[in-house]
Nucleic acid binder design. Structure first.
Lengths: 255, 255
DNA sequence: TTCAGCGTTCCGCATCGTGGGACAGCTTGT
DNA sequence: ACAAGCTGTCCCACGATGCGGAACGCTGAA
C-alpha cells in the first residue's frame, strides 16, 4: 500500500474499465454512462475520448458509444492464443510418440463426430487412413461416446432418441445399453471401442472442455486391430489418454 | 486542444492500452513490457497491477503477464452478446406492474452495489428516489447480499474482511452473522432487507448469472417501509423476484 | 558464493486528471 | 415559432494522483 488508506491502482484505468464494462451492457451516451458509473459527465466525456483514441470504443450512427474494434482485436488475440487445435497438437504428438499409433482430435457435431486433426507416426508403413474432416457416427466411435458420457443427461436423452446403425456385429445400438455404457465411461474417464465402427480399427478416446467450459471435444488413439491395442494394458493406456485430455483442458482453461 | 502542445487524451489510459496491445503479441514480464513500450519498469508494474484488478491481465504459472478474462468478457459483450440491461428491462417492468413499486437492476462493484437501471411506477406519487449510478454498500442492500450469497466462498471471505458501517440500528455488520445470512439467502433464492440501508426503505432482491455464467447482477424491488412490503407475503414475493431473475438468466444463457 | 537481472516498493515532486459550471446545439412539446 | 429541457463539449483552477529514479529483496545461473 503506497499511501495510507489508498487502494493500489490507477484511478483513470479503473474508471476507463468501469466505462467499458458499462458499455458491455449496451450502447450508451455520456449522460447515461455518467449515471451508470457515478462519474461526472466531463470525466466520462474525457475518458471516452481517450478510449476512442485507443479504438476501445466508438460511436454508432445515433451518437451512442459502444465497444470498439480495439476490444475485438484484443479479444481475437486472446482467443487466437488458445486455438483448440494449436493447443492440442503438441499433446497429440507426444501421445503418438508414446504409442506409435495415429492420434486424432474430434468434435461432436449433432449425432456425428468430426476429426479436426490427425497426427500420424511418420515412420509407420501401415496406418489408419486420415479421417480429418470426415463425419463418423458418434455411437460407434470412442470420441462420441466419451463426449456424450460427460454431457448433461438431457443431451444424452436427446442423443439416444436417434436410430443407430449396426456398422459391425460388435456395434452397440440399444439405447438402454448405451446409457449404462455412458455411466461406465464417465467413471473410467475414457472410452474403448473395439471393431464397432469398422471391423479392423480399435480406438480409445477421452473428452475435454474448451475455453468456454463446454465439453464438445475429445482426443483418441486408433490403430489397426491386428496390432492395436495388442498387449497394451487397456486401462493404463486409457488413463494416459485421459491425462492428456486433462492437460489440454487445463491449458485451455487456466485459472 | 486543452493545453498548448498537449494531445487530447488520458495518459494512463493510453499507456494501459499500449501494454494490452503489447500483450496481444504474447505473454511477457515487466522488463519485457518495459522494453516493448518504452515505459519505466515501475510504471509498467503499477499499470499491470491496475489492469490485474480489472481482470484485463493476469499472470500465468511462469509469472509472465497475459491478457485476462476481463478482456474476454468485453469481447463476449462485443460479439453480439445480449445486453443485460436490455434483456432485464421488460422483466423489470413486469415485476413493477405486479407490485406497483420501483424495480432496480444492480451490479456488485467491489464492496459496493451500483444501480444500473431503475423502473418506477409512473402513476405512483410517492416513490423511492432514483438510485441509478449511486454506489450503495453491499452488506446493507439486498442485491449485494443476494449476489454474495451466490458467490464462491473465497469471494465471501474476501468481502467479509471489509469493515461494515452500521447505517441504521438494524444493519447487520458482524461477519459471522453475515456468513450465516448468506447461507440462508442462498437456500431461499432471495434476500430481504428491512430498514438496514436507510430507515424508511425496505427491499427484496435475487441474483442472476450473466452470459459468462458469472453472478454479479441482481434485481430488486424496493419501496417506502410505510407501505412496503405491507401485507404482502414476503416469501411469495421473494419467490416472484427469484423467478424473474431466473427468467433473465435463462434469456442471457440460452441452451 | 557471487553476481546479474527481475520485479516490487518507496516517496518527493509536478504534471496531469478532475469536476463544477458555462454554453452551444438539438429535440420535444406547446 | 418559441421555449424548456437535455445532451455533450469545453474551460480552467486546483490539488490529487501518477510518475520515475533509486533502492532493495529475491531468484537463478555461473
Amino acid at each position: 500500500m503506497w499511501y495510507a488508506g489508498r487502494m493500489a491502482g490507477v484511478q483513470s484505468v479503473e474508471r476507463a474499465f468501469g466505462i467499458l464494462r458499462a458499455l458491455s451492457l449496451g450502447p450508451a451516451g455520456v449522460t447515461d454512462l455518467s449515471d451508470r458509473t457515478g462519474l461526472p459527465k466531463s470525466t466520462v466525456s474525457r475518458l471516452l475520448s481517450a478510449l476512442e483514441e485507443q479504438k476501445a470504443v466508438d460511436q454508432n450512427t445515433e451518437g451512442a458509444y459502444e465497444l470498439g474494434v480495439g476490444i475485438a482485436e484484443l479479444g481475437t488475440a486472446l482467443r487466437g492464443g488458445q486455438s483448440v487445435v494449436e493447443v492440442a497438437r503438441p499433446h497429440m504428438v507426444e501421445l503418438m510418440e508414446l504409442t506409435g499409433e495415429a492420434v486424432g482430435l474430434n468434435r461432436l457435431d449433432g449425432d456425428q463426430v468430426r476429426t479436426l486433426l490427425q497426427v500420424d507416426d511418420p515412420s509407420s508403413s501401415v496406418v489408419v487412413r486420415d479421417w480429418t474432416g470426415v463425419p463418423t457416427p458418434a455411437h460407434a466411435v470412442p470420441a462420441g461416446l466419451a463426449i456424450l458420457a460427460n454431457s448433461s443427461r438431457a443431451a444424452q436423452r436427446n442423443f439416444l432418441q436417434n436410430e443407430f446403425d449396426e456398422l459391425t456385429e460388435n456395434t452397440m445400438t440399444d439405447p438402454a445399453m448405451l446409457l449404462l455404457r455412458f455411466e461406465q465411461i464417465r467413471t473410467d474417464g475414457f472410452a474403448w471401442v473395439i471393431e464397432e465402427f469398422t471391423e479392423d480399427i480399435s480406438s480409445v478416446a477421452a473428452a475435454f472442455a474448451d475455453a468456454n467450459g463446454r465439453i464438445q471435444f475429445a482426443i483418441h488413439i486408433h490403430g489397426p486391430s491386428f496390432r492395436f491395442p495388442g498387449d497394451v494394458d487397456r486401462e493404463e493406456l486409457g488413463n494416459r489418454v485421459a491425462a492428456t485430455a486433462q492437460r489440454i483442458e487445463a491449458q485451455l482453461n487456466p485459472d
